[in-house]
Amino acid sequence: MTDEATTTAAGETRGYSVDNPAPVIEAPRARRAKTPRAPRMNFEMLGWLFMRLSGIVLVVLVLGHLLIQLVLDGGVSKIGFAFVAGRWASPFWQAWDLIMLWLAMLHGANGLRTIINDYAERANPRFWLKMLLYTATVFTVLLGTLVIFTFDPNIR
């Protein structure tokens, strides 16, 4: 959804008739004179592609994670420090959790960026909401990465 479409369309809903028809909403993919022949890659298109590629990988990583943590082997009841230590002893599960952390955080952060762009129309809130989002995202990704890499089963 573009900002342009939501703002121009807002509020003009009454009083339409045959003589005074509602404005036509152009089809989203309508081609105009200045539309380039072959779509060029840009940041938004990369983001769009990333949402879809990361989504496919996340289906395996996240649903597998839920299956292991909440369903198999006693469900949530078995989870504890010892269980975490057992799994992170293996580089396979470390890599699983690391990739899941990065992909889910970037996928979710990019999704929230889209949502802020959609609803925060004034420049100031828009800017600060994104700064808050980026700060929280960088913090969470770095903290999670640090925890996976520095985990110590003999901490005590």
Partner: peptide, 14 residues
């Protein structure tokens, strides 16, 4: 991620 980070504090906290 915050609650899981408690494994770096102590087994009891987690």
């Amino acid at each position: 991620v915050l609650d899981t980070a408690l494994v770096r504090v102590s087994p009891e906290a987690y």
